[in-house]
Design a protein around this nucleic acid. Sequence first.
DNA 1: CTAGTCAGGCTTTTT
DNA 2: GCCTGACTAG
Length: 735
Amino acid sequence: MLSPSVDPSPILNGLNPQQRAAVTAPDGPVLVLAGPGSGKTRVLTHRVAYLVRERGFSPYRIMAVTFTNKAAREMRERLEALLSPADVRRLTVGTFHATCARILRREAEVLGLSRNYVIFDAADQIALIKQVLRTLNLDEKKYAPAALRQAIAKAKQELIPPEAYTTSTYYAEIVRRVYELYQRTLRDNDGLDFADLLMLTVRLFQEHPSVLARYQERYQQILVDEFQDTNTAQYALLRLLGGRHHNVFCVGDEDQSVYLWRGADYRNLLRFRQDFPQVRLYLLEQNYRSTETILEAAQAVIRPNPNRVEKALFTRRGRGPKIVVHEAYNEEDEARYVVETIARLAREEGIRPGECAVMYRTNAQSRALEEAFVQAGMPYRLVGATRFYQRREIKDLLAYLRVVHTPTDWVSMRRIINVPPRGIGAKTLAWLEQTAHREDVPVWTLLRRVRGDEEGPPPAGLGSRARRALAAFTGLVQGWIEAAEGLTVAELIRRILEESGYAAYVQDGSEEGRERWANILELRNVAADYAHLTLTDFLADVALVSDVDNLEETADAPTLLTLHSAKGLEFRAVFITGLEEGLLPHQHAFEDPEEMAEERRLFYVGITRAKDRLYLTRAFRRTVWGQSELTRPSCFLEDIPGELVVGHHPGAGGGAGGGVGAFKEMLAWSGASSRPAPPPALQFRPGQRVRHPTFGEGVVLESRARGSDEEVTVNFEEVGTKRLLVSFARLERAG
DNA sequence: CTAGTCAGGCTTTTT
DNA sequence: GCCTGACTAG
């Protein structure tokens, strides 16, 4: 293991020549074009370590920008092996958004911004847009808040403020008017949305050259991961910050650009080469992740995309097993196939469930999969969909905290002013909004007048019941504001939960209520973990974390996630489900070749997550909005060479004609006959007593072969009837 | 004012 | 098929 040739620098140990060249690149702009699994993160990390240890840069002068918080955390962890803890702490490592948030907090005054601004996430933005629509007397049925949000975000990403928003259509005129009032209301509430974080930082630097100069001097080395995903604002930021020292080190892969819709522009790769003419180019073509079979399939899938530079990717991992294409009857059958195969992989190939991932195009597809996992009694980890921070109870509690933090935040207050119900209804709300608007004061001021805390015109037009309800609510908030000073965030949460009646409101005795309460306790635990954080910091951090960031590595359970969230991750076995026309590629892509190219890249990202085994599945019938419909295999499947694949390869066309009865379809569905199922010897019999580690003891009701596995139905004493797969559920005979 | 029922729209993808 | 918003009875 010990090599006789002593390498002078441990930082370069174990790097291949291509990686080494990139890591040791001389000063000046650098662009590393890296294929999937080529050790991008490694190169980035080692470059940072190299700059500190070999080139003598202070960690304080280095900024590394990643795409997700998870990537940032991973980078820090890797750096801890190469640098001293003190050095790692002094580095600036984070996402664009988090980094900008910090800069803005520090420089708030220059921009005339409140230092205690609150970050509005997508749901908050929607709520605010709805409020704006009401004020402007616009019908939210006609002007979808989600579409308006998208339009506003797009403008901000392109650094277009409301006053510069030009319009040529009636709809665009509406957008402009909504954007204008949205932005004003946002500021009145001391709020910044995601796009603001970037746009305002760019503006800060553009309009205040002395501030820019300070940051240029501080960050002499800038490193960027996933460069292909930068949008106009982010790129402008890089250009500004790197404008003096030109030491911008970008790593990216245009074939993995999947955020066009979010404003990402892979043409920034070209722009970068124009704006920094002395840029040095490095290629990383060796793939360390996947087998030859998987890598070849991936390249075959991406090749048809126009205007790309072909990379000569290669791997030394050997051929590996073939890719399995599986056609299931419907989405439930597809999900069962996935669960059973994961079980089989664990049994026969030593691939742990935790090393498997199940991917899909849309979040809606996760339901059928989840149900299959639950039925089999197999734990799973779900990324996205019902995101923790988007759950109602979490948003409610955060709204309470925000109100205590900034009582003039009407968007948050509106959310919880009557949750739990305390007699403040629609009429009272309308009165508050109108009066506040008419007198041009925050609602909070009005509330204080109602309670008599503040001098002002008497509140006319309020009934005595409403008045009492409002005064009581104001008293609660006032109490928390006063208490907040001396309390940790966790203690404040405890008090709010109790005094607001929210605890009792959630714990209504139902199963759902228990779950919600558990989520609330989890948030309180998060707060307790960060006991040193002030309420301001806590709220800021919470708004910027996403689900992938908190992916626990420990539990041995498969991960369910969208293809988008899969970026940057790797798994021994990957299942890509729903390979159907209209789903992958998605319906929206058919009119626009650009979008179609992005769908292809998305599929490419999915394939290249797999190290050893790749499964591509589809359902012959799929339920869309409660209607079961026939599907057609994804056109992408045809691009994978037949010799890389076993199983059902399209070409003969799976879709049966219309007017065929369900029974005939079942026969026509080739998967039905081609599934070999040698029934295993059954281990359990009805009547037997069994024990399960989490469900406790129970009696077997039924046991039957399911594929190559055994499915047992058990009536547990504590939790009732469950269906379990023997290979997963750690079921023992008892009694 | 609340709690219940019902109709209609909805699904890309996320920092 | 699920969630949101509108409507209705108490």
